[in-house]
């Protein structure tokens, strides 16, 4: 499989805490990679390093062979790596439709046409089509900040996908979403992603979601990678179970 994104020898310390020590992760062009680990294992730190929000102490991030380690988040976004957040990062006082419209406008403004009107017939149709695809068109004119967590998560992910990224990083897409809604929500996301050429790297606490959607799983513990392989291998690995999943889940998974 072709490698789209590659992290080599990443190290990052916050004082005495090692958030990443010699982390090596690669992501294939169309791969869906799950990252698991206990709280504080360095999962979100890893996403922050990949998107340029944090600079690693050492190590290199390569995207399609290009070194992007020193770039700012917005430049990395422009190259085609977008992300969603554990706490949805949306425009809370604006309508759901306007949220998407602004994301569309920014995505299209790279070629110096930021001066064009934001709302045209075409952009309005495109925004509505996106709302339909993510099954949130019922909330079109509602104030985004007042909606349930699951809807805001979908909106956050829809905004991240608007720029047609080559790589999408999802930080705990199912957290804060009720148990009976989470699979439905993940199905919606994966349906949309399945239709586009995009490599997905998602951080997740819910092992059911990981087992169901990941092609490959990487397990973090204390800033180190303790396992990297197929979901059934990693999730059944005794070390991973001890460090990450917790033994009480053993019976549920078997």
């Amino acid at each position: 499989m072709n490698t789209a994104l590659e992290a080599v020898g990443i190290n990052k310390r916050f004082g005495a805490v090692s958030a990443a020590s010699n982390v090596n992760v690669s992501l294939g062009v169309n791969e869906v990679l799950g990252i698991i680990g206990a709280n504080g294992a360095g999962k979100t730190t890893f996403l922050n390093i990949v998107t340029g929000y944090l600079k690693p102490d050492s190590g290199v991030i390569r995207y399609r062979g290009r070194n992007i380690t020193a770039l700012e988040p917005r430049k990395i976004a422009r190259l085609g790596i977008h992300r969603s957040f554990q706490i949805p990062q949306i425009f809370p006082k604006l309508s759901v439709f306007d949220n998407i419209l602004i994301a569309l406008g920014i995505a299209g403004s790279g070629r110096n046409n930021g001066w064009r009107p934001l709302l045209t017939g075409d952009s309005g149709d495109a925004a509505d089509a996106i709302l339909v695809r993510y099954r949130i068109s019922d909330y079109r004119d509602r104030e985004a900040g007042l909606l349930p967590q699951g809807i805001r998560k979908l909106l956050d992910i829809a905004m991240a996908m608007v720029g047609s990224p080559n790589i999408l990083l999802l930080d705990e897409p199912s957290s804060g979403v009720s148990a009976d809604e989470k699979m439905l929500m993940m199905d919606t996301i994966m349906d949309v992603l399945g239709g586009s050429e995009v490599g997905v790297l998602f951080v997740e606490h819910d092992m059911e979601v990981v087992a169901h959607y990941a092609h490959r799983v990487v397990a973090f513990s204390d800033g180190k990678i303790v396992a990297d392989g197929l979901p059934e291998e990693v999730l059944n690995d005794s070390e991973v179970r001890g460090l990450v999943i917790g033994n009480e889940l053993r019976s549920e998974l078997n």
């Binding site: 998107t51 988040p73 917005r74 430049k75 976004a77 422009r78 977008h82 992300r83 957040f85 990062q89 949306i90 425009f91 809370p92 602004i102 994301a103 920014i106 995505a107 790279g110 905004m159 991240a160 608007v162 720029g163």
Partner: peptide
């Protein structure tokens, strides 16, 4: 939300 604007590029 400045964070979202930044991450939209």
């Amino acid at each position: 939300n400045e964070v979202r604007v930044d991450y939209l590029g």
